[in-house]
Amino acid sequence: MNIWELIVALILGVVEGLTEFAPVSSTGHMIIVDDMLLQSKELLGSQDVANTFKVVIQLGSILAVVIVFWSRFMDLLGIKKQDQSGSSRLTLSTVLVGLLPAIVLGFAFEDFIDTYLFSVETVIVGLVAGAVLMIAADWKVKRDEKAGIGTKIDGLDAISYKNAFLIGLFQCIALWPGFSRSGSTISGGVLLGLPYRAAADFTFIMAVPIMAGASGLSVLKNLEYFTADMIPFFAVGFVSAFIFAFISIRFFLALISKIRLLPFAIYRIVLAFVILGVYLNMN
């Protein structure tokens, strides 16, 4: 394992950490940074090893969410109850209801998605369509504010089973690569009447079990690639993804209520054109 290979692992970990939970599509960024520029598949000598690495760095990002929301997860698991002050709390069953649509559709269409939807063209479509959804969410909030209409759902702990299920349906849109899980679910939550911060919190909390489950299974299926030569590469990517995901999540949560979704939507559209330009130049 040479220095350049470790630098590639570091760069990809940083890209994963910064984009996995921001509503900008980590898939789109990986296409332009890895598939078009760094080409870890060629570096590692195998697409399977490259895919395993991407799963490993995704686990680093997931760990960052767990740390940021540690008290909330302990509360959900009944390990450490937060001060309820006589009010209702978000429950584990509510989170599971939100996960149900994506789990069912993900299993049902896994082969179709892997075969037909992972391409540069489909990611570009997802980036632009996801941006339109985010702009629509912002537009609705501005319209309601002008009409003197407040949020319909007070906050994270006021999410009902119905709300969770509907937000889960929005999460299903992210099965199309490029849409972004956080972009779809935050937009869905806002459209349903959640404050931006509560929609973001619920999005991140829902992401952990579904992503950890899928990534964990993938790691178990590919343990053969965790050789002594590859461990340093995986470790650098994992640690860098964790650190930059932690920074990205804290920064995003502090800003989302102020800047809302429009800046991210504009960024996604610009990114789509950049990917299209690079793709056309390469072909």
Rank of each mutant, 00 (worst) to 15 (best):
G126W: 00
V120Y: 02
Q47L: 09
K80E: 13
G178M: 06
R89K: 14
F238V: 02
F242A: 01
A212S: 10
S119D: 01
F251S: 10
V208E: 13
I103E: 04
W4L: 12
F242Q: 02
Q171I: 05
S71H: 14
Y196D: 07
V68Q: 01
T185Q: 12
A265L: 13
Y225W: 06
G188T: 14
L271G: 06
S182H: 03
A207S: 15
L271P: 06
S93H: 09
I103V: 15
F242N: 00
V208Q: 10
I275H: 08
T122P: 02
V132G: 08
I269D: 11
T203F: 02
I31K: 04
P209L: 14
T122S: 13
I67H: 02
I113G: 01
F21G: 02
F273S: 14
R250K: 15
F252S: 03
I256A: 12
V8A: 08
V104F: 14
S61K: 07
F112Y: 13
S25I: 06
T203K: 00
L133A: 12
L76H: 00
S88C: 06
I173R: 06
F233A: 04
L43T: 10
I3R: 03
I159H: 07
F118H: 08
V14F: 08
G178F: 13
I3H: 03
A9L: 05
F273R: 11
G60D: 01
A136E: 04
I79R: 09
A108R: 05
I103P: 01
F226M: 01
T203G: 03
I3V: 12
M36N: 07
A200R: 05
G106S: 11
E20Y: 07
F202G: 03
N51F: 09
A131I: 04
T185D: 10
K140Y: 12
L255P: 02
I103T: 12
V24T: 03
I149P: 07
L280T: 11
L223M: 08
E5M: 12
I149V: 15
L10F: 14
F202P: 02
K221A: 03
A129W: 15
Y161M: 10
D111R: 09
F242C: 01
A129P: 06
K221H: 07
F234S: 00
A102C: 13
K80V: 07
V8W: 00
E5F: 10
E110P: 02
Y267R: 08
